[in-house]
Each structure stands twice: as structure tokens, then as C-alpha cells.
Design a protein around this nucleic acid. Structure first.
Length: 507
DNA sequence: ATCTGCGGGGAAG
DNA sequence: CTTCCCCGCAGAT
């Protein structure tokens, strides 16, 4: 029977990728020998098999903002990515990072969210849609079968990570707990202050702006609170990790070309490490062919650092909107160090032409559950894309035409990632290691042929880790017991303090 | 108020 | 026919 083994804890590779299956298969692997640990930031064409009692899997959670999408198949839940909400001006937060809010899942709530202003510079917020799957949003599929929950992701997120839901929830609960004993006394004080101060709320700061607003607690820096940081997935393949990642160069090459487009949206903080390179969508439709040149450069680590640990909560900020006018004094976008001239985010438009992948780079380094294997190994070879009520209910075997090929590929891949080297399990991001790059698609620059639908995935080898990433969470309950912040307890404090302290110079 | 899942239905290839 | 997406409904949080 399937059972998690002790060694599984350190298993750096996805079991889901080691088995040959597709979410649409009539029969899923029976009694898997092992299960994957929950991957909150699944990205790329990956598959995981979770225990049916895995809480997060049961809830179909994801760090990405995924909304339910009807696939007309009651057995398979399909969810598509909503992208990320960012400041239209790409203003830099106090710590230099960028705002990356989690889009509300509910349409109405999302519209409402977008009407709000950037909590940092007050300019408009912008929703960057996900186009990581051949121009369409990345999709995730969930299927409960027996004692396992099968997960399959299709597409490579082409945008920064939004704040994860678990981060938000954990942060709030932790902060609330900590503030519990502090709240009452401060609340009283705030009221006293408010009573004696300007009520206009214009360009004004309160010492303690939002204790009145529970949501605002999200903005309160809590240096003593260990953020979960990004869940760390292991880097299965040391080779791919070292790989050609010359995303920095790639980016340099790409940026100029992006400027030729109407609405270039460029995130430059970090090397793109590959999503576009590996993603099928980009492989065949991106106007910016991947170029690999100088691989000697080590990408800097500035810019789009995911703010998972500390995302501004728009609602929370509402109180600030009422109380402060930061617009006039707020600094605008600042080029990331070393990226001057390249990081300009010029696009303020809301849409990208057609279904083509957005003309912008994603510097954010989404978690790639490097389940892929060696650079030459095919990624997940999904043949059947979504699930259609008809095909699924008919339980018809995968079309031989493509299915056979896919199977072959699958068997070949077999998750060669083998890295069982637990050392590689260290989160590269935490170590500031250069992002790994996946070049499988075409180290030489050649592009995979355009293949309709998911079959594209078969062509390009895997979406290799364009970044260090990892997504394993340590234990289902890790969110309740944050490990020391991998990314930034300090950053959190830094980003928020300005609002909290209301230092006049910060506004 | 939101999240989440379901299902109808239309558009596009 | 397949695959996508949008929309509304309803139950759960």
C-alpha cells in the first residue's frame, strides 16, 4: 500500500512525475508507492500525487491565485491562474521590492480590488493576467482517485508570484495572536490621538494608523515573526541547476526587443530563469525568442522578490488611503540596482494583445517544483489537455495518435531528476544562488514546433527550473509553525515600517 | 464578504 | 468536437 517513507521526506523529486499518468487517464496509478509533499507553488508542467488526507490538497490550495474553471467534468477539478495584482507604476516598496498582491478569486471582489490604489504610491493597481499556457492562464487539475489526490499543472506562470494564501492567513493569525495583548492598550491610545488630531486624513500620519482596523494588522511589521518565506522545493537536478542559466543575459537580450512592442511589461528584478524558455506557450508563441549568450553572469537578486512574506493587503490599506496621502511624496519606480534602464515598467495598459504571451518578463521566480529531469528529459508529457465531459465520461483511452507518443516520452522521462542528493534540497533562493535555467527547449535557440494544445508539452523538454525554487512545504502544518523566514523577516519589517512608523520622510 | 465548486453556454480553432 | 473562458448560482467560511 502507498505509504510515506522516511526517506520521502527528503525526496527531492516528484513521485507524480515518476509515474506515467495524465489527469485525464481513465485509470490513475493505483496505490502509488509514495506521495509527494504538498507543493504550494507548482509551476511548469508538473504532476504530483498527494495523499488523500493531505489537507492542502483536499482544499486544492495553491500559492498562485487560482480560480475554478469549468471543464465540464465532475471528476476533475480545473482551476486557472488569475495572475497577480501589481502597482501600475511598479513603484518600489520601502525595501526595494515590488507590490505583488494576490488577486481576489471572486470576480466581484477582484474588480473591487482593482479599483483600489496602490498602498505604496497610490497609483492604480494593475492585474497582470497569467498567460503561461500557450497564451492562456496556467491551469491546475485536481482529481481524487482512491487514496490519492492527483495534481497536474499545465503552463509556466509568466508573472510574479502573488502573496500566497497560506502566507496571508498565517501571517494574519500570527500577528493577531501577537497583537492580542497589545491591541487593547494601543487601541485606546489611538483613539485618544485621533480625537485630538486632524480628521482630514490628508497627508497626515498617525503614529499608529490602523490598529482600529484589524486588516491593517497585516501591515504591522513584526520582526519577531518568522515568515515562512517561500516554500522550498528541492532542486532535483544539480545539472539543471547549474545549467545555462543565463537568464541575465537572456534578459538583457530580450528587454530591448520588448521595447519594440506596444505594451512592454518588464519585470527585471531577477533573471527570468526560464519560464518563457521552457514554457510551451513561449516556445511557440512568444515574440521574443530565447537567446542564450553570456552565461557567465550571475543574476542579481534585486527586483521582483516575491513578497509572499509580506504582501500589502489592499483592504488593510484602505485605512491608509483614508488617512494618508502618500502619492505626492512617494517615490516612483526605481530601477533595480544593476538593472538600470532595463527594469522600466512602461506598460500601464491592462491587456496584452491577443492570446499571445504577454510581452513582459517575469522576474519573479515562481516556485518550480523541479520535477523535471535532466535538461534533455521531456517535461510532463501531457497529451490530453483539459478534461471534457464527453471524453472523460466515455473513458476512452488516450488517443493513440498522440497518446502513444506521450507515453513513450513519459516513460523516458521517468523523473530522471534523481537527485536524491538531499543537499540539493536546499532552497536556492534562500542562498541567493543563481537561478537555474532550463534550456531544454532549445539551448541553441531553436524553437519547438508549434503544437496545438497540450501536446506542446511533449515537444519541449521540461520547463526547467528557471529559478531556484521549490515548493515543498515542510509538513502539512508548517504554516502554523513557520520555520525561520527564508526570505525575510527583515524585509517584512522594512517594507511596512514606513507606514507604521509614519516617518514624514517616508511620505 | 469571499471563497469554492458546479454547471450552462458561447467563442474559437 | 475540443478547449477556453465568462457568468451565475449556491453552499461553505
Amino acid at each position: 500500500m502507498p505509504a510515506e517513507t522516511g526517506q520521502e521526506a527528503d525526496w527531492p523529486c516528484s513521485y507524480g512525475m515518476k509515474l506515467s499518468w495524465d489527469i485525464n487517464d481513465p485509470q490513475m496509478p493505483q496505490a502509488p508507492a509514495h506521495f509527494d509533499r504538498f507543493c504550494e507553488w507548482a509551476d511548469g508542467y508538473v504532476r504530483f500525487i498527494y495523499r488523500s488526507d493531505e489537507k492542502k490538497a483536499q482544499r486544492h490550495l495553491s500559492g498562485w491565485a487560482m480560480r475554478n474553471t469549468n471543464n465540464h467534468n465532475g471528476h476533475i477539478l480545473k482551476k486557472s491562474c488569475l495572475g497577480v495584482v501589481v502597482c501600475a507604476r511598479a513603484c518600489a516598496l520601502p525595501d526595494g521590492s515590488r507590490l505583488q498582491l494576490r488577486p481576489a478569486i471572486c470576480d466581484k471582489a477582484r474588480l473591487k480590488q482593482q479599483k483600489k490604489a496602490c498602498p505604496n504610491c497610490h497609483s492604480a493597481l494593475e492585474l497582470i493576467p497569467c498567460r503561461g499556457h500557450s497564451g492562456y492562464p496556467v491551469t491546475n487539475f485536481w482529481r481524487l482517485d482512491g487514496n490519492a489526490i492527483f495534481f497536474q499543472a499545465k503552463g509556466v506562470h509568466d508573472h510574479p508570484r502573488p502573496e500566497s494564501k497560506s502566507d496571508t492567513e498565517a501571517r494574519r493569525s500570527a500577528i493577531k495572536r501577537q497583537m492580542a495583548s497589545f491591541y487593547q492598550p494601543q487601541k485606546k491610545r489611538v483613539r485618544e490621538l485621533e480625537a485630538g488630531e486632524d480628521q482630514s486624513n490628508s497627508g497626515h500620519c498617525n503614529d499608529i494608523p490602523s490598529l482600529e482596523n484589524p486588516e491593517a494588522l497585516d501591515l504591522i511589521p513584526d520582526t519577531g515573526f518568522p515568515f515562512p518565506g517561500q516554500p522550498c522545493c528541492s532542486f532535483p537536478n544539480s545539472e539543471s541547476y547549474k545549467a545555462p542559466c543565463d537568464l541575465a543575459a537572456f534578459q538583457r537580450d530580450r528587454v530591448p526587443s520588448l521595447q519594440k512592442y506596444p505594451n512592454p511589461r518588464v519585470y527585471l528584478p531577477r533573471p527570468p530563469c526560464g519560464s518563457e524558455l521552457a514554457g510551451p506557450g513561449y516556445a511557440n508563441s512568444s515574440p521574443y525568442p530565447p537567446l542564450y549568450k553570456d552565461s557567465s553572469r550571475v543574476p542579481d537578486d534585486t527586483g521582483w522578490v516575491p513578497l509572499n512574506a509580506l504582501q500589502y493587503d489592499i483592504d488593510a490599506f484602505s485605512s491608509f488611503e483614508r488617512s494618508f496621502d502618500v502619492t505626492s511624496k512617494q517615490h516612483g519606480w526605481k530601477p533595480a540596482p544593476g538593472k538600470a534602464g532595463l527594469g522600466e515598467w512602461t506598460d500601464h495598459g491592462q491587456s496584452r494583445a491577443g492570446a499571445a504571451p504577454g510581452p513582459y518578463d517575469s522576474l519573479e521566480l515562481p516556485c518550480r517544483c523541479l520535477t523535471a529531469a535532466s535538461p534533455g528529459a521531456p517535461a510532463l508529457q501531457t497529451v490530453i489537455t483539459a478534461t471534457t465531459k464527453v471524453s472523460y465520461q466515455a473513458y476512452r483511452a488516450p488517443a493513440p495518435k498522440h497518446g502513444d507518443n506521450a507515453r513513450q516520452v513519459k516513460s523516458l522521462s521517468g523523473c530522471p531528476c534523481a537527485p536524491e542528493n538531499t543537499q540539493t534540497a536546499i532552497c536556492p533562493e534562500a542562498l541567493d544562488l543563481p537561478a537555474a535555467v532550463a534550456t531544454e527547449a532549445s539551448p541553441t535557440g531553436s524553437l519547438p514546433l508549434k503544437i496545438p494544445g497540450d501536446r506542446q508539452a511533449i515537444g519541449p523538454p521540461l520547463p526547467l527550473p528557471r529559478e531556484p525554487v521549490p515548493c515543498w512545504t515542510d509538513g502539512a502544518e508548517m504554516w502554523d509553525t513557520y520555520p525561520p523566514g527564508l526570505r525575510s523577516a527583515v524585509g517584512y519589517s522594512g517594507r511596512v515600517s514606513p507606514f507604521f512608523s509614519c516617518d514624514p520622510e517616508d511620505f
